[in-house]
Measured scan of single mutants.
Amino acid sequence: NKFNKELQWATWEILNLPNLNEEQVKAFIDSLKDDPSQSANLLAEAKKLNDAQA
């Protein structure tokens, strides 16, 4: 289903952001699991944090 694909993509993207630490990655992944419908928003937040920590 649509959410599953978005969830998988967002998870992969977050796991490959170079500037997030392990705790941050885990928090984002946990949030994705809690509410897959928010995957696009969570991914945007993760990318923002990644850029801020570059």
Rank of each mutant, 00 (worst) to 15 (best):
residue 47 K to D: 02
residue 43 L to Y: 06
residue 17 L to Y: 05
residue 27 A to T: 13
residue 28 F to M: 04
residue 34 D to L: 14
residue 24 Q to D: 03
residue 39 S to G: 07
residue 52 A to P: 02
residue 29 I to G: 01
residue 41 N to I: 11
residue 31 S to E: 12
residue 23 E to P: 05
residue 50 N to T: 01
residue 12 W to D: 15
residue 50 N to G: 01
residue 29 I to Y: 03
residue 5 K to D: 15
residue 26 K to L: 11
residue 51 D to P: 01
residue 3 F to L: 09
residue 28 F to K: 00
residue 20 L to P: 00
residue 43 L to M: 09
residue 24 Q to G: 00
residue 18 P to H: 09
residue 2 K to F: 10
residue 43 L to W: 04
residue 4 N to W: 15
residue 44 A to I: 12
residue 31 S to L: 09
residue 14 I to A: 02
residue 6 E to Q: 05
residue 54 A to Y: 10
residue 29 I to E: 02
residue 38 Q to A: 08
residue 4 N to S: 04
residue 49 L to M: 08
residue 29 I to N: 02
residue 2 K to S: 15
residue 30 D to Y: 07
residue 27 A to R: 15
residue 7 L to F: 10
residue 29 I to P: 00
residue 30 D to W: 10
residue 15 L to S: 11
residue 14 I to S: 02
residue 38 Q to G: 10
residue 26 K to S: 07
residue 54 A to H: 14
residue 25 V to R: 15
residue 44 A to V: 12
residue 4 N to R: 03
residue 23 E to Q: 14
residue 29 I to M: 08
residue 53 Q to V: 07
residue 46 A to K: 00
residue 52 A to H: 13
residue 24 Q to N: 02
residue 33 K to N: 15
residue 14 I to K: 01
residue 16 N to M: 13
residue 12 W to E: 15
residue 14 I to G: 01
residue 41 N to V: 14
residue 14 I to P: 01
residue 2 K to M: 15
residue 22 E to V: 11
residue 37 S to E: 07
residue 43 L to T: 05
residue 32 L to E: 00
residue 29 I to V: 13
residue 50 N to S: 14
residue 6 E to S: 02
residue 5 K to E: 15
residue 17 L to I: 01
residue 53 Q to H: 07
residue 35 D to Y: 08
residue 8 Q to V: 08
residue 22 E to K: 13
residue 23 E to K: 09
residue 46 A to D: 00
residue 25 V to A: 12
residue 46 A to S: 02
residue 51 D to E: 13
residue 43 L to V: 13
residue 12 W to Q: 15
residue 16 N to V: 05
residue 39 S to T: 09
residue 49 L to W: 04
residue 17 L to P: 00
residue 19 N to G: 04
residue 32 L to H: 01
residue 16 N to T: 10
residue 1 N to T: 04
residue 2 K to L: 14
residue 23 E to W: 14
residue 49 L to R: 05
residue 51 D to W: 09
residue 15 L to T: 15
residue 41 N to Y: 15
residue 47 K to Y: 15
residue 48 K to V: 10
residue 45 E to V: 08
residue 51 D to V: 09
residue 14 I to W: 02
residue 41 N to K: 14
residue 9 W to Y: 14
residue 11 T to M: 14
residue 4 N to G: 05
residue 51 D to R: 08
residue 17 L to H: 03
residue 49 L to T: 07
residue 8 Q to N: 04
residue 6 E to F: 12
residue 10 A to V: 14
residue 42 L to D: 01
residue 31 S to A: 11
residue 31 S to T: 12
residue 4 N to L: 06
residue 40 A to L: 14
residue 11 T to S: 08
residue 18 P to Y: 06
residue 1 N to V: 04
residue 17 L to S: 02
residue 34 D to Y: 12
residue 17 L to T: 01
residue 46 A to L: 02
residue 35 D to P: 01
residue 43 L to K: 02
residue 15 L to D: 03
residue 38 Q to N: 13
residue 38 Q to M: 10
residue 51 D to N: 12
residue 49 L to A: 03
residue 34 D to N: 13
residue 49 L to S: 03
residue 4 N to I: 06
residue 38 Q to V: 05
residue 3 F to G: 07
residue 6 E to N: 05
residue 35 D to K: 06
residue 23 E to T: 10
residue 42 L to H: 04
residue 23 E to N: 10
residue 51 D to K: 09
residue 26 K to H: 12
residue 48 K to G: 04
residue 10 A to Q: 04
residue 21 N to R: 13
residue 33 K to P: 02
residue 31 S to K: 11
residue 20 L to T: 00
residue 26 K to F: 07
residue 48 K to M: 07
residue 17 L to Q: 05
residue 25 V to M: 10
residue 3 F to P: 15
residue 41 N to R: 07
residue 39 S to M: 15
residue 1 N to S: 02
residue 11 T to R: 07
residue 35 D to T: 08
residue 20 L to W: 00
residue 40 A to K: 14
residue 13 E to V: 07
residue 18 P to Q: 08
residue 23 E to Y: 10
residue 54 A to M: 10
residue 5 K to P: 15
residue 14 I to D: 01
residue 22 E to Q: 05
residue 24 Q to F: 01
residue 51 D to L: 12
residue 6 E to R: 01
residue 35 D to V: 05
residue 49 L to K: 06
residue 4 N to Q: 09
residue 6 E to D: 07
residue 54 A to R: 02
residue 3 F to Q: 05
residue 33 K to T: 12
residue 46 A to M: 02
residue 36 P to M: 06
residue 43 L to Q: 03
residue 7 L to T: 10
residue 13 E to K: 06
residue 43 L to R: 04
residue 5 K to R: 04
residue 34 D to E: 13
residue 31 S to V: 08
residue 1 N to R: 00
residue 35 D to G: 04
residue 5 K to G: 08
residue 28 F to P: 00
residue 32 L to K: 00
residue 53 Q to K: 03
residue 31 S to W: 08
residue 25 V to H: 07
residue 33 K to W: 15
residue 32 L to I: 07
residue 10 A to M: 07
residue 7 L to H: 06
residue 48 K to Y: 07
residue 22 E to M: 08
residue 25 V to I: 13
residue 54 A to L: 09
residue 40 A to N: 13
residue 52 A to Q: 14
residue 32 L to T: 02
residue 47 K to F: 09
residue 10 A to L: 09
residue 50 N to I: 02
residue 12 W to Y: 10
residue 3 F to V: 05
residue 37 S to T: 08
residue 33 K to S: 11
residue 15 L to R: 07
residue 19 N to M: 08
residue 49 L to F: 05
residue 52 A to Y: 12
residue 32 L to P: 00
residue 1 N to M: 02
residue 39 S to E: 02
residue 20 L to Y: 00
residue 14 I to L: 10
residue 30 D to G: 15
residue 7 L to E: 08
residue 39 S to L: 13
residue 16 N to W: 04
residue 38 Q to K: 14
residue 24 Q to L: 04
residue 48 K to P: 01
residue 30 D to P: 00
residue 41 N to S: 12
residue 9 W to Q: 15
residue 24 Q to H: 03
residue 50 N to L: 01
residue 54 A to K: 04
residue 22 E to T: 13
residue 53 Q to F: 07
residue 28 F to H: 01
